[in-house]
Amino acid sequence: MADTDSVQTAKPGHGNSGFVRLIRDGHNLQTIATLMVLTLMCVLFAVLSDRFLTASNFQNIMRNAAPLIIASCGMTAVMIARGLDLSVGSVLAAASVLAASLAVAGVPLYAAFVLGILFGGGVGLINGTIIAKLSVSPIIVTLGMLNIARGVAYLITPSAILVGLPRNWSDLGTSKLAGLPMPIVIAIVVACLFHVIMSYSTFGKRIYAIGGNEEAARLSGINVPRALILLYVLCGTTAAIAGIVLSSRVGAGDPNIGVGFELQVIAAVIIGGTSLSGGEGRIIGTVIGALIIAVLGNGLNLAGVEPFWQWVAQGIVLIAAIIIDRQVQDGMRNVKKG
């Protein structure tokens, strides 16, 4: 129970200190709103199932959320710059089967991981270059790449690799560091890194500028194509890391994993408050958005809801999140005017 307590009490504590200051900033208002949705969901599921509010279940949720959080960080950066990457699910699969088959072929495990991650970055480089240099719509480029990378995954291996993986293949997914499962540690590290990039680095300011007003960014002397390419490289990289973490945890290299994952990632980013029209969004929000999706899946499972209904529920949450977001923004605008 100790774990749950710390998760639960952290929020009101933050809310009370300097609450007015927090509210004054629209971004924080939005973060608080999503945090409240997450809290409400936790309360609801705690009532529905007595197995929900346990330390082991929370670890379970976090472990499941880890790949989603990792991939969503890269996607957040891309979407703040008014881009989109639909290929993350396929990249995740291709990177993990590539790493798995390299490991089977005798490449040292961590070298195989690194090569898988570099592959993801390479796919991002191709995406970004076509988008930025040839001015093709990101939806079209990454939709094409969604098919290509999935095809590559099947070309590497048409079925799941279960046999011949080194014995330590699953270590990354199952080991612990300082009592925390490794996937969670990796997710926290990636999220912190992206938070620093987006909120404190000069590169981060440029990403917000590109998404908020690309012409202004260009006229400020920012090399917009280069920044965009780097963003898609980051997004491909995080997708590949998510793939490595996921396949290590499930103990296989499977070309079928991650089908539809891109939609979960985009949903997490949008629920977290990143605007589809760019220029706005925060990593903290995305992490909360990913947790909302993970809690939803876990809670509905525990409550005995059929998997098909979980799809429906996820869709409803996504649409509701956007409606709330619009209402909040309109409200803010009216306050400003009035």
Binding site: E215, A217, S220, I222
Partner: peptide, 20 residues
Amino acid sequence: LTVVDGLTIAENIALGDEPG
């Protein structure tokens, strides 16, 4: 008026030549 609405005045003025 090519400013970035989502950034502060200071950040906008710094854009493209950010101190760091």
